[in-house]
Structures are given as C-alpha cells and as structure tokens.
Write a protein that binds this DNA or RNA. Sequence first.
RNA 1: GUGGUCGUAGCUUAGUUGGUCUAAAGCGUCAGUUUGUGGCACUGAAGAUCGUGGGUUCAAAUCCCACCGACCACCCCA
Length: 432
Amino acid sequence: MSSKKERKSKNMFQAPKGTRDILPEEQIYWEKIRQVVQKVAKSYGFERLDTPILEEEGLFIKGTGSSTDIVQKEMYSLKTKGGDRLVLRPEFTPAFIRAYLEDGLSSRPHPLKLYTTGPLFRYERSQKGRYRQHEQANFEIIGENDPVLDAQLIQVFFSIVGGLGLKDIVAQINSIGCRQCRPAYRKKLVNFYNKRKGELCFDCQKRLRQNPLRLLDCKDDRCVLINEETPQTIDNLCLDCHNHFKNVLEYLDELEIPYILNSRLVRGLDYYTKTVFEIWPEEEAGRQSALGGGGRYDNLIKILGGKETSGVGFGLGIDRLVNFIKEKNIKVSSESLPSIFLVQLGELGKKKALKLFEDLRRANIKVASQFSKNTMNAQLKSADKMKVPFALILGQKEALDGTVIIRDMKSGSQETVLWEKVIKELKKRVKK
RNA sequence: GUGGUCGUAGCUUAGUUGGUCUAAAGCGUCAGUUUGUGGCACUGAAGAUCGUGGGUUCAAAUCCCACCGACCACCCCA
C-alpha cells in the first residue's frame, strides 16, 4: 500500500523551459513534413548531410557573427571535461560549411546541394512557435553565384510548403549588397542617422555603433517614422549586386512565386550578402512567425578558412509548420492503421495466436492485438476502438481444430477458415 | 532580457468576498451487467495533497511573497 507521500513523485520533473514532448498523435504531422522535405529535396538534387548537434563555440562566433543576437545571448554553451568550449548548434549553415571544408566536399562537383533536418537550440524566452529546442529543415547550395540558384532555392521552399497543401504563402525579399557596395551604404546610413540621433530609440542608438543595418527593421514608432526617409538598400547597390537582384526577381516572376520587396528586411546574421528573404503566411505579415528564411553568403566560406566560394541557403521551421498545418486543418493521412485485430482466448488459443500474429505480420498484413487481455469483451472493444474492419478469433476450440474465425466488424457475420487459408482470405477481403 | 495574462484529475472545466472542499462534473481509462462476441445503455473503480515552496489565519484551492512553467506583446528569429 502506497502512502500519498510516496506517490507524489509524479510531477517532480518537467521538460526544461522551451522544450516539449511530441506525443504519438502529433507524430503524423512530423512524419509528413519530413517525408515531403525529403521528397522535394531529392527531386531537386539535394543530398543529405548530417552534422553533430555539438560544435565548437568559435564556429558560430566567427561564422554567424559576434555581434548577432544568436551569438551574444542565445547560445547554449558548455565546457567539456577536457576544457573545450562547445555549443548546442543554434543554426545549420556554419556547421555545413565546416563540414564542407573539413570533409573535402569542395572537391566534389559544384554546385553542391545539401540538406538536412534536425534540432537546433537557442536560449531565448519561449512562446508559441518559438522554442528553445526546435527543428528546422535546412537547404544549402554551395559553390556558384548565379542568381538563378537564389530563385530556385526559394522555389524549393515553395514546393515543400505546396506539397503540404498550404496556400497563401509569400516571400519577402531584399538585397543587402556585398563587400563592394555595403561599406559605402553603411556610411551613408550612419551619416543619415547621426543627424537625427536624438530622435532614435535607445536600442537604435546602440545599434548605430554596432550594426547600423539593423536600424532599418526597428519597430519603434519613432524609428519607423524616420525610416521612411532612410536611404534604401536597393538604391545603393553596386552594378553587380543590382544586376544580381534584378535577375533573381525576374526568375521569381518566371516561376510565378509571389513575393514582396521589403527594403527593410536585413536579417540578423552577419554573413549574408546580396539576396535575403523570409517566407511568411500571407495574413500573418507583421507577426512574428516567419516559416523560414535565408539568403546568399558569398564571404562565409572564406571567413571560415576556405577559398572564396559562394553559397545560398535557407532554414525552415518545422515546429511552426506543424502549428500552421493544424491551424489550417490540413488533413494528414495516417496510412499504417491496422486492418485486422487478432482476438485470443484461453491458454492454447493465446499460444497459437501469438504464432499466427507473426505469420500475418510477415505476410505484410497490419494486425493489432492485445495479448495481455484475456476476455473476448475487452479485446473486441479494443478492436472496435481501433476501427479495424475485421477481427480474427482464435479460442480453445479453434486452436484444437486448426481454424480461426474471421469476423466482419461491420456486419457481424463470421466465417471459420483453416489456418493455411487465413492469409489468402484476409488479403482478399482487405483489398476491397 | 523587458512588460503583461494565466496554472484545479490524462483532457475540458465548476468551485475563489477564506469555513463540512477529507475538492465536483463531463470526456477519456479500467472493470462489471454479457464466465466465447464490440459499438448503445446502465453500474462501479482508479485517477488531484488544487504548478512548487514559504507566509498570514483558529481555518487557504481561495489572501500575500518567491520560484517554476505556459501563453501574449516586445526583443529577435525558424
């Protein structure tokens, strides 16, 4: 007899903040998304690359950028017993580039198209659709700077979203220039804002020194007002960037991908050059739930120690997609429901049924059972709950006769057949 | 990291000017009515120290404080 005190161990532990359990009934959504991601990836020639969840801390400080929020406040960092500083990866791209350089992938035919799915970790205040551990699908095309790849990558995103039956999705897109034109633009920006420094919000005064581009997407009323007069990124691109962007947009038109130019889209990662984009549900514009985003990074590989090599990529938030699919009541089929329930009665029946279960399973018949329940009542009730069309009944009598009863759950009609014929009989019926 | 709302069985909720609340209901679970036949119905059982810990009080699910967690708006992003 357990006292109340002893039983209380129940809620002693809870999942850490911003993490959660994905319950069995949710899995159909996850499976479906992963399946569509894989299918689309392969159809565009992407190969899977898996990288470790742990990486050296320096990889992201250098790759993602030391002034970014991700690095400054959102990394789960730890020190190993050997003294290495590691982090739970906060994003994929630098890890992909690390693998590209470390594993000699640069000697493979280019462009190299790689994708993966897996958990990412960011230490931030959790909210719906914003978890400390969340899963992303990630796509990268490494080794070419042709604008057609930017456009096709965005198409890949739309193919995934479309493959899930989601509509009214729109891309927001911008170009933030390159090494040639950005410094001049940045200077222009700083000059502009310096003149009106007193009117900026507190954060922007700080950003002005650290990362002036970020002033563009500030949502503070005062800054929004000022930003209406700010020099636009698009008007300050060098010829190369200008043409690149123009081409990307033309390709998007050709693909009939809905997009809006958003001259204030800058994104929080240091490595982006030229094209940056985010993908949003149409009606959600302005809220905080982009389904994904990405851009071009023509300097990153060099920064991480490789040759000057271009890349484009994007991440897609699977947790958010799951929420979105549920909100939209998109039907996701759960294919592998059992079609047969095997009922056993009596010790001999149980033994024979145990064996029959294996025979059926090997014959690729999806069969369910409850060997730990012994009454016909309980077992048929389970069968009913599972909504199987047929039940097999194997009791003492049938075990001795070498037969089994096939029961049609809907009509209630029953037929006794020999064990040797069960599989054939079932296949005949299940097909209909 | 900032500001706000909230937290009662697995789920949804009732109960909160403190007092038979040793906490109630529906759904769900399990069992029985039906010892070899499910769905309906009826009966019953299990399941909650009212998020956790302190405090106030003769008395706390109800008031106060702290912590934990969820959600919302920022910040930022997926």
